[in-house]
Amino acid sequence: MNYSKEFKEEALKLSDEIGVKKTAAQLGLKYYTLADWRSKRKEQLNAPGLTDAEQQRRIRELERENAELRRANDILKDALGFFAKDRKK
C-alpha cells in the first residue's frame, strides 16, 4: 500500500512521541512498515550533503578512476588473448 509523504511524516512524528508499536497500532500500520520508515529517515539524516563543487570534484575523481580501470581491463584482455594463443600451439 502506498502512503502519502505527509502521512508518513505525521506517523514518524507520532512514533517519536509515543513509540513505534503504539503508533503502528493506532494508525493500523504494520510495525515493520513504520520501523522501516524510521530507518530510512535516519539514513537520510546521516547522509552527508555535498556542495555542487564537491559533487563535480567527486565526479572527476570517479571518471579518472573509471578510465584507469578501463585501461587495466584492456591490458588484461590483451594478456589473456596472448596466453590463449600460446596455449593452442
Score class of each variant (00 low, 15 high):
Arg87Val: 08
Lys85Arg: 15
Glu61Pro: 02
Ile59Glu: 12
Leu27Lys: 03
Lys40Asp: 07
Gln26His: 04
Leu12Ile: 12
Ala47Gly: 04
Arg38Ala: 01
Leu27Phe: 04
Glu17Asn: 12
Leu62Lys: 08
Leu76Asp: 05
Leu76Cys: 02
Asp36Trp: 10
Ser15Arg: 05
Thr23Lys: 02
Lys30Ala: 09
Leu80Ala: 13
Gly28Phe: 02
Lys30Pro: 01
Ile18Ala: 06
Glu43Ala: 09
Ala24Gln: 04
Leu12Asn: 03
Trp37Gln: 04
Phe82Ala: 10
Gln55Tyr: 12
Gln56Leu: 12
Ala67Asp: 10
Ala11Leu: 05
Lys42Tyr: 09
Asn2Met: 11
Glu10Ser: 03
Ala11Arg: 03
Glu65Ser: 08
Ala79Thr: 13
Ser39Lys: 14
Leu12Ala: 01
Arg70Thr: 12
Gln56His: 11
Gly81Thr: 05
Arg58Gly: 06
Ala11Gly: 02
Leu14Ser: 03
Thr23Glu: 00
Ser4Trp: 06
Ala24Lys: 05
Leu62Thr: 02
Asn66Gly: 05
Leu76Ser: 04
Phe83Leu: 12
Ala25Cys: 04
Arg87Phe: 11
Leu34His: 02
Lys30Thr: 07
Asn46Thr: 06
Ile75Tyr: 14
Asn66Pro: 02
Leu69Asp: 00
Lys40Ile: 11
Leu29Lys: 00
Thr33Ser: 06
Ala47Lys: 15
Gly81Phe: 06
Asn46Val: 02
Ala24Thr: 05
Asn46Lys: 13
Arg38Trp: 04
Val20Ser: 04
Ala53Gly: 11
Ser15Asn: 04
Leu27Ser: 00
Glu61His: 09
Glu65Tyr: 08
Lys22His: 02
Leu62Ile: 08
Asn73Gly: 05
Ala72Leu: 10
Arg87Ser: 06
Ile75Arg: 15
Glu17Asp: 15
Tyr32Asp: 15
Arg41Val: 01
Leu12Arg: 05
Asp78Glu: 15
Arg57Leu: 12
Glu68Trp: 09
Leu50Phe: 13
Arg38Cys: 02
Arg58His: 07
Arg87Ala: 14
Glu43Phe: 11
Gly19Asp: 03
Arg41Gly: 00
Thr51Val: 02
Tyr32Gly: 09
Ala35Met: 10
Phe82Gln: 12
Ser4Asn: 08
Tyr31His: 11
Glu61Ile: 11
Lys13Cys: 02
Gln44Leu: 14
Arg70Cys: 00
Tyr32Arg: 14
Asp36Lys: 14
Lys30Arg: 13
Gly28Pro: 10
Phe83Gly: 00
Ala35Lys: 13
Leu14Thr: 05
Ala79Leu: 15
Arg58Tyr: 11
Arg70Leu: 14
Asn46Glu: 15
Tyr32Leu: 07
Arg87Gly: 02
Ala53Asn: 11
Leu76Glu: 06
Asp16Trp: 03
Glu9Ile: 02
Glu54Lys: 05
Gly28Gln: 03
Met1Asn: 09
Lys89Pro: 07
Leu45Ile: 10
Phe82Glu: 09
